[in-house]
Every structure is written in structure tokens, then in C-alpha cells.
């Protein structure tokens, strides 16, 4: 039964990822006092790209061909494992936080590798920066998840969600501060401005995505939108699990589904507003902001240790 939920969850997330990126783009347009494109534009783009002929670089190797399926596939797998509609993990073996973090490292590895495979310089720079985002955000994310694991008594995401939903996670303020730090870390991981290191349109011309075309590009764009949705869902799953289904009864599942869609929509709205209100920051000063998030995460660690 839970396997079916996992598969349906994955399909659902793949289906709504372009819609959410379309909504994000519409909000940006409105904030810039433009009309903007339709919120379904990403679907039209994907369909169009899928039918195009693909051009691959003469000197590139099989890594460039493998990167898009691996990128998309890893995030589909992650989407299947998170406790979004239910409070428990549909697939427990995919629900351990260490598994989630390291499974997110695989698409990053292949993405950057394919970027280095290309001969264009902007592509390669984007790939290297994508790796650095991982380095900068890992400490805060692992510290937050460590605090949650000790507070909830398990490293499984489902058990963490359950403990927050029952308000049984022990040092309460530590969990709240950890939630704040996790929100910031997930914002950075989602690649919203000013942390869009990999595809900084203003600086490096879409970066590694410039190397792809046709169906591969469609797969990568879908993958990038899906990554943003999965990271936002991770935050929602652990820290805002209220409303998710406690049992597998169909009515509860439907309510859980509706509540989840609402939560993720709110998260994307807030992220879009923040994204369009901040300015571009010079690349080498981004470290200050990421270390600030580490500081807040360590504050939550101190609260955990003290027992507040």
C-alpha cells in the first residue's frame, strides 16, 4: 500500500514541479510590474524541447549523456521517499537523513562533472560553483538534522515528522530555532537569488545548462525544478508536518495531500517574494551569509545541549 503512495507521490511531484516554477516566475514578473508569461509556460517549454533535435558537443563524453537521466532520476527517488502526504515514510529505506543528503550529492556530482566535460568556460564555472554550494550548505543542513535527530530520537525523517507533529520532540525551542536555520539552508540549497550560483543568469549565462539541448535540456530543467520542490518538501516534511495523514485511511490521505499542496505553495510564495526583494551579491561574499546560517544552526545546537 505504501509503495503505491510512494509511486503516486513521485509522479505528483514531477507533475507539479513546472507549475510551481511557473508560479514563481509569474510572481517575479508581477513584482517587476510586468505581466509575465502564463503559469503553465514551463509545461509548454518542456513539450517543445522534447520534440527538438538534440545537439551534443563534439568533444564531450558519455558523462554528458548520462547526467540528465541521473539528475532527474535521483530526485524522483527522493520525492518517493519523503513523508509528505503521510506522517510516516512511505519507503523507509529512502527516508534516512544521511541517505537523503548523500543521495542529493549524486546529481550534484554528475551535474558538475558534465559541466567540466564541456569546452565552454561559463559552463565549467557554473559546475564548480554548484559544487561549492554543496560545500557551503552542508554544515548548516547536517547540524540542523543532527539537532532534530537527537531531539526526536531517530535519524528517520518519518519519525522526526511524527515527533514534531505530536509535539514530543524534547527541547522545544531548539527545534524551533533549528527549523528557522533549516528554512534558510533550504532557501540556499534551492538556489534562489542570491544563491543561484550554478545558473546565475546575470553572471554566467545559465551556466551548465547551456551545454544541453532538446530532450536532455527538458530533462535538466525538469530536474532543477524538481530539486527545488524536493528541498522545499524536505523542510515542510520535517518541521511543518501538521495536517499530514497519521494512518493510511483514504480520507486522511486526501486531506494530507491538500494540506501538503497548500504548505508547499506557501513556502514557494514566501521564497519568491524574498528572492525578488534581495539584490545580487558578489560571489566571494556569499560565504558570509552561509556561515551566518551555520551560526544560527549552532545556536540551536546550544539550546539542544542546554535543554531549553
Amino acid at each position: 500500500m505504501t509503495i503505491i503512495i510512494a509511486i503516486l507521490q513521485a509522479i505528483l511531484l514531477v507533475a507539479i514541479a513546472p507549475l510551481l516554477s511557473g508560479i514563481t516566475r509569474k510572481i517575479r514578473a508581477k513584482m517587476h510590474a510586468r505581466t509575465g508569461t502564463s503559469i503553465f509556460q514551463d509545461y509548454y517549454d518542456l513539450a517543445k524541447l522534447w520534440k527538438r533535435c538534440e545537439v551534443k558537443e563534439g568533444g564531450s563524453s558519455i558523462v554528458s549523456r548520462l547526467a540528465p537521466p541521473i539528475f532527474l532520476g535521483s530526485f524522483i527517488l527522493l520525492a518517493a521517499g519523503l513523508p509528505l502526504v503521510m506522517q510516516a515514510c512511505p519507503v523507509p529505506i529512502l527516508g534516512d537523513i544521511i541517505t537523503v543528503l548523500y543521495l542529493m550529492a549524486l546529481p550534484r556530482f554528475m551535474f558538475a562533472l558534465a559541466a567540466i566535460d564541456s569546452a565552454g568556460s561559463y559552463t565549467a564555472i557554473g559546475g564548480v560553483r554548484e559544487l561549492l554550494v554543496g560545500v557551503l550548505v552542508e554544515p548548516s543542513l547536517i547540524l540542523v538534522l543532527f539537532v532534530m535527530a537527537v531531539a526526536a530520537g531517530s535519524t528517520n525523517v518519518g519519525v522526526m515528522a511524527l515527533s514534531v507533529a505530536n509535539l514530543s520532540a524534547y527541547p522545544f525551542v531548539a527545534v524551533v530555532v533549528a527549523g528557522v536555520a533549516c528554512a534558510m539552508a533550504c532557501y540556499i540549497e534551492m538556489g534562489k537569488l542570491p544563491f543561484d550560483l550554478a545558473e546565475a543568469e546575470q553572471e554566467i549565462q545559465e551556466g551548465p545548462l547551456a551545454a544541453y539541448s532538446g530532450p536532455s535540456l527538458a530533462m535538466m530543467k525538469l530536474g532543477v525544478s524538481l530539486k527545488q520542490l524536493v528541498v522545499a518538501s524536505l523542510f515542510v516534511a520535517i518541521f511543518v508536518p501538521f495536517g499530514a495523514a497519521a494512518t493510511a485511511a483514504p480520507l486522511e490521505l486526501l486531506i494530507g495531500l491538500a494540506v501538503y499542496l497548500g504548505k508547499v505553495l506557501v513556502v514557494f510564495l514566501i521564497a519568491s517574494v524574498i528572492e525578488n526583494a534581495v539584490m545580487r551579491v558578489r560571489y566571494k561574499f556569499l560565504g558570509r551569509y552561509t556561515w551566518f546560517v551555520v551560526g544560527i544552526a549552532s545556536l540551536s545546537l546550544v539550546f539542544l545541549v542546554i535543554g531549553i
Partner: peptide, 15 residues
């Protein structure tokens, strides 16, 4: 999808 639309190889990368 590639079968239908084809794959070309371009030695000149656009940088």
C-alpha cells in the same frame, strides 16, 4: 525522443 528527432554532434562548442 532522440530517435524521433535525431541527435547531431557539433564540434564547435558555443561559448
Amino acid at each position: 525522443a532522440n530517435q524521433k528527432a535525431g541527435v547531431k554532434s557539433d564540434p564547435d562548442t558555443w561559448a
